[in-house]
Design a binder for these strands. Sequence first.
DNA 1: ATTTTATTAGAATATATATTCTAATAAAGC
DNA 2: GCTTTATTAGAATATATATTCTAATAAAAT
Lengths: 193, 193
Amino acid sequence: MGRTAYYTSEQFVDAALKIAALQGPAAVTIAAVAGEVGAPVGSVYHRYLSRNTLLAEVWLRVISSFQEAFLQTLDNGDGLAAALHTPRWVRLHPAEARLLLLYRREELADGSWADDLKEKARRITRDLDCAVRNYVVRMSGKYDQESADRAVFAIIDVPYAAVIRYIRLGRKPPKKVDDYIRQTYSTIMRKEK
Amino acid sequence: MGRTAYYTSEQFVDAALKIAALQGPAAVTIAAVAGEVGAPVGSVYHRYLSRNTLLAEVWLRVISSFQEAFLQTLDNGDGLAAALHTPRWVRLHPAEARLLLLYRREELADGSWADDLKEKARRITRDLDCAVRNYVVRMSGKYDQESADRAVFAIIDVPYAAVIRYIRLGRKPPKKVDDYIRQTYSTIMRKEK
DNA sequence: ATTTTATTAGAATATATATTCTAATAAAGC
DNA sequence: GCTTTATTAGAATATATATTCTAATAAAAT
């Protein structure tokens, strides 16, 4: 019952994502989002409690998109493949990659998150920690901080470093970044044994 | 002639740097800067044309501090020492490091820079490019893009990656990040020859 | 057909903060 | 001592944008 909707929540998230990726988080005003969709600002607030909530939703969607395939690969026990997931995902999703890797989460959506969003964010962090832990245990038979730190460096930090320069330039990372990541991975993870 | 000054330009830059490093760029309001110094807002504007100009000055000071020692080391021809400059500088200057590595330049001070500041920024970029170029030529006898990209990855991008995690946690990077950087450096730069 | 209500519609409001403006001060030079 | 002017002082203004509010709509349920 009630009037049928012209605009969906998803449209507003799409619009916010597009604006944020193209022009940065500061350009994501409610008026801009509404304008992009062709809706009145009231309709944005009808779907979302606040700008912050909308942007939190954007961030959660993007990081989930990244993390899903990443965790799957890592859970298969293939650390190198997981490391190479970053450049692959960045090439496949250039707009999302800009958003996720160029800006801090706090620049997109600040501290005041609703409880359900906070919980989703916590789960994302937890899932990542957990996957890394499992991977390390599977690798070396036991868990220690030193091995975990090496793995995080080789599988997360280095791929990020290899890719961020090209994101800043607005280009897709060339094939050679995969080589850098591979070489670094085998050097760093070799010390493991 | 004229009344003698109670407050110096430097005090305002110091205050802005402190607030930005501690609470992020958004917390650097003119009122906050003035309050930190104990001055009226008018005195801030007496020294600086705008908030943006003040923050540009902050950014230039911090990046110059980083880059001076970095370039000196690289000009000596020691790439590994240059790569290790990043963790060392971060340990010595935690507040400056937060500011420089945690936030994008555009988040601190947006596009509308005065000509003299723009020129200073351009010089910083140019000096870095130039030093990398010289280093590559000295290494391999000639210059090619591939060698330059490898050097940038090993000397700039990887040290950044190794250190940023600890900056986010508000901790000093432990000694082992130096090991990661060393190992990566020798792997990546070995392919050079 | 009437009622109900989710939704559209966009004008009005609230708020934060950069910037401007006017006046008062105080040191230096004469 | 008087004049000049760089500087302090902080109140007033401008602006951008998030948020709220009131009214109009339209589809579904009865």
